[in-house]
Nucleic acid binder design. Structure first.
Lengths: 229, 229
DNA sequence: CTAAAAATATGATATTTATCAGTAATTCGT
DNA sequence: ACGAATTACTGATAAATATCATATTTTTAG
């Protein structure tokens, strides 16, 4: 038997915890679990979404393509996050693409269970609202960072962000390994520039690398870079 | 007698239209109307907000100060928009400052009327959710624009945005007049750079100016600049 | 295991943008 | 209306960043 949402721990991290037993039962009855391999996409910018994706495992990058062909990564979503919410709420096509950064396990929840609950259960709606409000605040911060900080500052910030949000492995490397291109798309810069700054940070002893893996060596100095020293 | 929310047209443009008669009555009984002069602030980054502001007239810039002392304008809010919603919902201090760009008339609505309704009226909550979701989508667009477009492209885009959202006056100038500094803070660039590009656009016949007023002369060519030609 | 492909790295250079310095124009308070 | 203060503008220069070219390393497919 497939696992039931009622027993799913992941739910505690997102707005689904505000659903009633019956609502949750309906979600569980209609949901499907999917395995998404690294590099595959959950949905593409412009798609009409018929539901939301609840992340059980793995990480997805949410990005938007610009006219010049470069992707800007707007958010990295991991365990517990619900993707596609915004699009389902506004009943608009999605403005972002979601691509797996590593192998993922997600639950697809058809939109009806969501929209029905949104209309009937104010606790759930409020909970979703709180999450979206939080995302909005973070987006505002990103705007200010990108427009006011140098690439070097944003690179340092990105490493600290990855450390805080995804942790480190046994060998002291960031647990989430991104390609140099993905890093540059998070930071909003050219891939070559990102690589150059990685080299510089390495030379200065702020980080260490092994292949594409990156580890933080001197958190204090990285923070100083973020602050502009 | 002061005007009542029940009769207020502005309400049709925002989430307050989803309130019931009784809820609206309570809002009306507790609200206060304020005049905010150009340059004065509704609230400052870091303030704890005791309510939201419903804009009846005038325009407010929502901005965030960065470490280097420059403001980044994240949004321009005018008639019908409700400011401070996000902060009240998350019960956090506000992450933005709201300053009047011209003389404003706003209604201050104490947060209790809002939070009570959020917990009881799912229609209202859903309506607020839709608005915040829309803001989030716009914020994502801003992120991509800032990181992927040149200053020149963003300047052209800003003028078209001002035209679309605030219209033109009888003489063909943008109805919302911003200082050069404000323009540079919307676009996310140095004031001198913004001025330089204004001069260039003027020389090329894309815009015309009179004092600080700016008018669009060749919309098509401006659009071409946005697209990168 | 190996050749091909992809990703990473680095140098040289061009372009974009910011900063500094100074002048002209406009706005504001009395 | 007048001087002071702010805002707008322009030039010279410096700094940041992107782009192009190319080499090296790593990964992938067969």
């Amino acid at each position: 038997m497939e696992s039931r949402c009622e027993n799913c721990i992941i739910r505690q991290f997102n707005s689904l915890r505000a659903m009633s037993k019956e609502e949750l039962k309906q979600v569980s009855d209609t949901k499907t679990t999917k395995i998404i391999k690294k590099g595959e996409s959950l949905f593409e910018e412009g798609d009409k979404l018929n539901g939301v994706y609840c992340v059980r495992n793995g990480v997805s990058k949410l990005s938007k393509l610009s006219a010049n062909g470069k992707d800007q990564i707007v958010k990295l979503a991991s365990k517990g996050e619900v993707l596609g919410q915004r699009s389902v709420i506004s009943q608009e096509i999605t403005n972002l693409s979601a691509v797996a950064v590593n192998d993922m396990e997600v639950c697809f929840i058809p939109k009806d269970s969501i929209t029905n609950t949104l209309q009937k259960n104010p606790n759930f709606t409020l909970e979703v609202l709180r999450h979206i409000a939080h995302d909005l605040k973070e987006a505002d911060d990103v705007i200010v960072n990108i427009s006011q900080k140098t690439v070097k500052q944003r690179m340092a910030e990105a490493f600290l962000y990855l450390q805080n949000n995804f942790g480190e492995d046994a060998d002291g490397f960031l647990a989430l390994t991104l390609s140099r291109e993905d890093i540059s798309n998070v930071v909003g810069t050219a891939t070559e520039s990102a690589i150059r700054i990685i080299s510089e940070f390495k030379k200065k002893g702020l980080i260490h690398t092994s292949g594409k893996k990156i580890g933080i060596k001197d958190e204090r100095k990285l923070l100083e870079v973020v602050e502009g020293f």
